[in-house]
Write a protein that binds this DNA or RNA. Structure first.
Lengths: 160, 160
DNA sequence: CTTGCTGAGTCTGTCAATCAGACCTAGGGT
DNA sequence: ACCCTAGGTCTGATTGACAGACTCAGCAAG
């Protein structure tokens, strides 16, 4: 009989992937982040540009601000009252590689035949930016078989 | 007045991030992928291990199989009838960097004080595997300011 | 050959989230 | 005094999440 996978013996209560998905794993969250990273930071702009429902946008923004991924920054156009725009915090900026990874995958498998609608370029050099896996000894990792999951310091045994 | 962000002039209809999130952007999808990548591939194992509702697991698996991210593979334990397990396809394997990126972010901001429950190690060398941004000329990209979004071949003007 | 166990589901009813569309509101312009 | 605009709230219908019970196929023990 096949041996059971070792991962079955580990609890998933403190799994950081699961926790991350509690905030990131709603249909529109990443779309909001995409907009913000692309410089679209105002409520009406985002709503018109993405076509998402007002209420959902309100909710998502509040959730992201609450999670300290975005922050509200006041601004004032001349002849307008003060309003707020949404900008990524440092914690939010650190999600950029996730966005790049998602876009990379989406471009490969989900793009229209003409190709990707947007590209990320390295400022100064102009070459396209990708995400790569690399170990801390500097080796680049290509095949999935070259990575193994092992328990870390926060591991908890599973009792289910 | 501030110039409007150029991204506002681009349509998001063919945005590959949005499309990717249609399949990835449900609360449990990534959790299922995490399990599968960690070697937990059978219905009951996943259900018990994650605590997710049967119906949702059924739905997510069907959706992922439908999207060609997982495939059902028959197996048979001795003295048992034939059953199926779920394994990533190539398209599914290519989501691994996304999972690593999410985990990396989650570990930094969401982990318990003891640390991350699991780590990814480079097989052979044993060092931890991270995700890094790099441009195709080989430069590593660190700051968010070093990346710009530009229109790609599949760009469509926005008319909203 | 009936009874029970197990993995992998389906069925049903409840409760929460999504969505579209209408309504509200504070400042500013005319 | 009235209208415009960005950024919301409120309302009701549809969809999704969830828990718990039920189903079903094949194998095994009695």
């Amino acid at each position: 009989m096949t041996t059971p996978p070792p991962a079955l013996a580990w609890s998933t209560d403190n799994c950081t992937v699961g926790r991350a998905m509690e905030v990131l794993g709603e249909r529109w969250t990443f779309v909001v982040l995409r907009e913000v990273f692309n410089g679209v930071r105002r409520f009406e702009d985002m709503r018109r540009h993405t076509g998402m429902p007002r209420q959902v946008l309100t909710d998502r923004l509040a959730l992201l601000v609450d999670a300290d991924i975005l922050r509200r920054v006041p601004y004032r156009e001349p002849g307008q009252r003060e309003r707020h725009e949404y900008r990524p915090t440092d914690k939010g900026f650190d999600l950029y590689p996730v966005l790049v990874a998602v876009r990379h995958w989406g471009d490969r498998y989900l793009a229209d035949p003409e190709g990707s609608p947007v590209e990320f370029e390295h400022v100064g050099c102009g070459a396209e930016v990708d995400v790569v896996l690399r170990c801390r000894d500097g080796h680049e990792v290509t095949g999935r078989r070259d990575v193994a999951t092992r328990p870390g310091p926060g591991i908890v045994p599973f009792s289910g």
